[in-house]
């Protein structure tokens, strides 16, 4: 059955792609970039990684003050301890991540063997499970410590999501993420794009809507509203709830593919997580 489905995808996908309506990821990216550079002409590409603080001077000032004593620092420290503490079997994270903790820029990536988008939180839990440790929860809790530490060590690396052309399933995953981004959902009928593309820079009540470009570079994020550091997928959940849609499971296929699309949009922007947001 599964093989049949895969075969169908493999056959159907080139047909779909042959249609003129389908834009390549590079086309999507350049359309989105040109939209944002017209909308915020004073903001340089890499600055978009600072979210709302890239486009609003007033909130930027208080954010810069916060960054002097970053609220995520204790999480980075806790993550360092996790990194250096051996599992029960004597091994540790460093045995799974041979290149060291600073590898966040290698995620998300297409895992051809597993046929899915591999994210850093998934890789962390795969490491734990392979070593007989209990997996961590994907939205809240100590996964954010280890993520904070690894991301902190990845700062300055550029986002570089690749959609390999030798596996149509990767393109399908990208398309699914894109569809998710532009589809309206929930009782309030908003798409992600309604707020973070079409109305980025506008006020919703007294909050400014941040631009989609650069959205992924700063995660995990310390949010004042949460009072703690949280994952990208936790934030996805919050957004879905706000439009009155039932949120999906963190690290489920929907959010993984969404992350794949959204991170691709930020290719070339430097990772700057963990970061602080309102």
């Amino acid at each position: 059955m599964k093989r049949l489905f895969t075969a169908a995808v493999v056959i159907a996908l080139p047909l779909v792609m042959a249609g003129s309506a389908v834009a390549s990821p590079a086309d999507d990216s350049s359309a989105i970039r040109s939209y944002f550079s017209k909308k915020f002409p004073a903001v340089e590409l890499n600055e978009f990684g600072n979210g709302v603080y890239a486009i609003d001077k007033v909130s930027r000032e208080s954010w810069e003050a916060i960054e002097e004593f970053p609220p995520y620092e204790t999480f980075v420290d806790a993550g360092e301890e996790m990194w250096n503490t051996a599992f029960a079997n004597g091994k540790g994270y460093k045995d799974c991540f041979a290149d060291g903790p600073g590898v966040a820029h290698k995620y998300p990536h297409w895992d051809k063997e597993k046929g899915m988008v591999m994210t850093l939180p998934l890789a962390i839990n795969n490491c734990r499970k392979a070593n007989g440790e209990k997996p961590l929860k994907y939205a809240k809790g100590s996964i954010n410590d280890i993520l904070s530490y690894m991301t902190y060590n990845s700062r300055g690396h550029k986002t570089n999501v690749v959609i390999p052309s030798d596996d149509p399933r990767a393109m399908a995953a990208y398309e699914e993420g894109k569809q998710f981004y532009f589809a309206r959902r929930g009782q309030l009928n908003f798409s992600c794009a309604s707020c973070h593309m079409q109305n980025s820079g506008n006020y919703i009540r007294s909050d400014i809507l941040s631009p989609a470009l650069g959205h992924t570079t700063g995660f995990p994020v310390y949010r004042s509203k949460w009072g703690t550091v949280g994952t990208l997928h936790r934030r996805f959940k919050g957004c879905n709830k706000q439009v009155r849609a039932k949120p999906f499971k963190p690290q489920g296929q929907e959010y993984r593919n969404l992350e794949y699309f959204l991170t691709y949009m930020s290719n070339g922007l430097e990772l700057n997580g963990p970061s602080a947001r309102k």
């Binding site: 309506a21 834009a23 999507d28 359309a31 989105i32 939209y35 894109k178 569809q179 532009f182 589809a183 309206r184 959902r185 929930g186 009782q187 009928n189 798409s191 794009a193 593309m197 079409q198 849609a245």
Partner: peptide, 22 residues
């Protein structure tokens, strides 16, 4: 609401880039 949510998805099976991105 469940029926409305289903209809909502069916109505946008393929989503193109919105006009402001073109």
């Amino acid at each position: 609401q469940a029926e409305a949510g289903y209809k909502q998805v069916m109505a946008q099976k393929t989503v193109e880039l919105p006009s402001y991105l073109k």
